[in-house]
């Protein structure tokens, strides 16, 4: 997916985030349940999981917006419970929803952020940021008038203006077009190359694949972590890719396979079908009657990250749902 090879951070890099047992409940619901997380300096750490899995809550606990009910740890070497004021100075946070002032101009927004962080030369910082964004000519436009992609770029620029050591991005590319998304990720990699640590939550698999490491969260629990390949391998999932020239044949096969024991997931992708299961032999036995059918081409492939996540989500809902 990534066009350029980005060096992974050194193995002995210091831990920027190091928390254990983070727990947070809202009322009766445990939104985050005993999460351990270690993120090394310069890493791009992908935070994945379905809606409501506790990603935003975890991010908010890391930057001191929420106080954990239980758990402890450090962020940038500062205690997340008692030292959140110090953490705030070194963290850049981009919220899920655009949270700069829509009724302030781009320049006014940046000037506000620069002053709140007490930058030494706020005017210069604003000018440099505007130049970097290529927004000098539109600096006096209201932020609310910007398109989704530009709003996101502005929010990112505002979040890194004070040169944070850790960048927290909460679904930064939701609702942004593919080109803008790709540019955004190129920029994230550039920042990480310069030593910035990035924790980014996302629903996009292609974005997950651009992270150095990922973890997967469902129902407040951490289900998997590691590099993309590690997570896929650990899942033990086996996938058959079935292709055919006939869409009707694929649709019929999808219906027929859906309820077979040993088959966990059947997902059509246009004229191909992903048939996955956790047990290699059981899956093989389940699909055996169709293996010889004319017009079908069967191939055993490595499951995609998406297959793995949906598989994990189903497993998790059996346990917690």
């Amino acid at each position: 997916m990534s066009q350029t090879h980005h060096a992974e951070p050194a193995a002995d890099a210091p831990l920027i985030i190091d928390v254990q047992g983070l727990t947070k409940s809202f009322g009766e619901t445990k939104v985050v349940d005993g999460i351990d997380m270690q993120v090394a300096e310069g890493e791009i750490y992908g935070f994945l999981g379905p809606n409501g899995s506790g990603k935003t809550t975890t991010i908010r606990m890391l930057c001191g917006l929420l106080t954990p009910d239980a758990g402890a740890g450090t962020c940038l070497g500062h205690d997340i419970i008692s030292d959140s004021a110090k953490i705030k100075l070194k963290v850049g946070y981009m919220t899920q929803r655009f949270s700069l002032y829509e009724d302030l101009s781009i320049r006014e927004n940046l000037a506000f952020v620069a002053s709140i962080y007490g930058l030494k030369k706020p005017k210069q910082a604003v000018r440099e940021t505007l130049e970097k964004l290529g927004l000098e000519t539109r600096a006096n436009q209201l932020a609310g008038a910007l398109s989704g992609g530009w709003k996101q770029r502005l929010a990112l620029a505002a979040a890194i203006m004070h040169e944070p050591k850790l960048l927290l991005l909460d679904e930064p590319t939701a609702g942004v077009d593919p080109k803008a998304r790709r540019d955004f990720w190129d920029e994230i990699h550039q920042l990480a190359d310069n030593g910035l640590t990035v924790l980014v939550s996302t629903h996009y698999m292609d974005e997950a694949e651009r992270c150095h490491k990922i973890c997967y969260l469902a129902y407040g629990k951490l289900l998997a972590r590691g590099t993309v390949n590690e997570v896929i391998r650990q899942s033990g999932l086996v996938t058959w890719l079935v292709s055919s020239n006939s869409q009707r044949q694929i649709n019929r096969l999808a219906r027929e396979l859906a309820d077979r024991s040993g088959v966990e997931m059947v997902a059509p992708f246009g004229a191909t079908l992903h048939v996955s299961g956790a047990n290699d032999n059981a899956l093989e036995a389940a699909v055996a009657p169709w293996r010889g059918e004319a017009g079908l081409d069967w191939q055993k492939v490595e499951p995609t990250l998406e297959d793995v996540f949906i598989h994990m989500m189903q497993g998790a809902s059996d346990n917690f749902g």
């Binding site: 001191g64 917006l65 705030k88 919220t95 655009f98 949270s99 952020v113 709140i116 962080y117």
Partner: peptide, 13 residues
Amino acid sequence: ERGTMENLLTMPV
């Protein structure tokens, strides 16, 4: 309501 409070709270103010 506009969500700007969340941003304000993450800043050292």
